[in-house]
Simulated assay, not measured.
Amino acid sequence: MNCRLGCGACCIAPSITTAIPGMPEGKPAGIRCIQLDDSNLCKLFGQTQRPAVCGLFAATEDVCGKTDTEALWLISSLEAATNA
């Protein structure tokens, strides 16, 4: 599936343990990435400063669901399950 532009769930729900410009300690789960703009688009997309883990994320229906709200819930649930 293609990423739903403006969803932003993958930039909010998961924790990111590597440094992000403006977030040198990474990003906790459930916290909006500082590089997510007002339209929920990544300001670092296509740039070398973007964390490698972000570039590895692939939108799939089992992770992103059918709506932005479902994506946030699914990714949050996966984050909680893997950090329990």
Rank of each mutant, 00 (worst) to 15 (best):
S15I: 00
F57D: 09
G46A: 07
L78Y: 11
A9R: 00
C33N: 08
A19E: 11
W73P: 00
A59S: 12
I12M: 07
K66I: 01
A9K: 00
G30W: 09
C11H: 05
T69I: 08
V63P: 00
S39A: 13
G26P: 00
R50A: 12
T48D: 15
A58N: 14
I31A: 12
C54T: 01
A29C: 03
Q49F: 13
E79K: 01
S15R: 14
N83F: 06
D38Y: 10
T60I: 05
C42F: 08
K27S: 03
G8R: 02
T82R: 15
S77G: 13
L41I: 12
P51C: 04
P51N: 04
R32V: 10
D37S: 05
R4N: 07
T60V: 09
T48V: 14
I75M: 07
C33L: 08
L56V: 00
A59M: 03
R50H: 11
S15T: 03
T69E: 15
L78V: 01
Q47G: 07
L5H: 13
A80K: 15
G22A: 05
T69H: 12
A13I: 01
L44I: 06
L5G: 07
N83Q: 13
T18P: 00
R50M: 14
D38W: 11
A19M: 06
P21S: 02
A29W: 06
V63F: 12
M23K: 04
Q35L: 09
A71I: 00
I34A: 14
P28W: 11
P21Q: 08
Q49L: 14
L74M: 09
D38A: 13
P28D: 13
A13T: 05
D62S: 13
R50W: 10
L41D: 01
E79R: 02
L72Y: 10
A13H: 07
D68T: 10
W73Y: 13
T18W: 13
G65K: 03
D38C: 00
T17P: 02
A81M: 14
P51Y: 05
A13Y: 04
W73R: 15
R32P: 01
G55L: 07
N40S: 05
D37T: 02
M23N: 09
G55M: 07
R32T: 13
S77Q: 15
L36S: 02
G65C: 01
G8E: 03
P24G: 02
C33M: 09
S39G: 06
I12C: 02
D68C: 08
G6C: 03
I75W: 01
C54E: 03
T48K: 14
Q47D: 13
K43F: 04
V63Q: 13
C7M: 06
C10E: 00
L36I: 08
K27I: 01
R32F: 07
A29E: 08
S77K: 15
D68F: 02
A71Q: 05
P28H: 12
P14W: 08
C33Q: 06
F45R: 10
C54M: 08
M1G: 08
G30D: 04
T48F: 15
A80C: 03
C33A: 09
A81V: 10
A58W: 12
